[in-house]
Amino acid sequence: MPHIAPLSIDTADATTAATLKAVKAKLGMVPNLFATLAHAPAALNGYLGLSETLGTGRLSAAQREIVALAAGQANTCQYCLSAHTLIGKGAGLSEDAIVAARSGRGSNPLNAAIAGFARALVEDRGRVSAEAMAGYRQAGLDDSLILEVVANVALNVLTNYTNHVADTEVDFPVVAV
């Protein structure tokens, strides 16, 4: 049983219900994470807004999923690992690429740097060594990509921690942590 139960469209205030209906129209469902965040409309709208904005950045959809998988694994978030395994497949990631991302690796130098940097950000709480940063830069991360990875990690930490606190029921095909 979740610590914070998802909010239903029927019990949400009109504005939040409209947001949840828009999510359902776009995704075909309202993921339990979003319905849980709906208890705090500012948190839900903040998540949705940042997610949409980051979708216009330089990282591809597959690379954003690499970040999500690396962060989800580092934070041992079963909900996010389950969701982003499915979403990652839809973004073109193979099973091998998903496994690699979860362990901070990638199929090419740039994706390996993205995954390694994302995982290091979580594990080192943002204090990545100068030596590691030099390696990520050598693999293709410039200032712009570094900051996009930071922003995507922050977005995923929000969802990872929300799921830990709420004990969100996984409504995607479950994968092991």
Rank of each mutant, 00 (worst) to 15 (best):
40 A>H: 07
95 E>R: 10
116 G>Q: 00
67 V>D: 02
93 L>R: 11
51 S>M: 10
23 V>C: 13
173 P>I: 10
124 D>Q: 07
77 C>Y: 05
57 G>I: 03
97 A>Y: 00
101 A>V: 07
3 H>S: 10
122 V>K: 08
12 A>C: 13
78 Q>F: 11
45 N>F: 00
166 A>S: 07
65 E>R: 13
34 F>E: 07
90 G>E: 15
124 D>N: 11
165 V>Y: 14
70 A>E: 08
113 A>I: 09
61 A>R: 09
132 A>Q: 01
167 D>V: 14
95 E>W: 08
84 H>P: 13
165 V>A: 08
125 R>M: 00
63 Q>L: 04
151 A>M: 10
46 G>P: 04
107 S>V: 13
154 A>G: 08
136 Y>G: 01
135 G>R: 04
32 N>V: 07
57 G>D: 11
2 P>L: 01
1 M>C: 12
82 S>Y: 00
126 G>P: 04
37 L>N: 14
160 N>V: 05
34 F>T: 13
54 L>R: 03
51 S>Y: 12
132 A>R: 02
143 D>N: 06
57 G>S: 06
136 Y>S: 00
42 A>D: 04
83 A>Q: 01
97 A>N: 11
154 A>Y: 05
65 E>V: 12
3 H>N: 08
19 T>S: 08
12 A>G: 15
137 R>A: 04
174 V>I: 09
67 V>A: 07
168 T>V: 09
156 N>Q: 02
124 D>W: 12
75 N>A: 00
144 S>D: 09
155 L>T: 08
99 V>L: 08
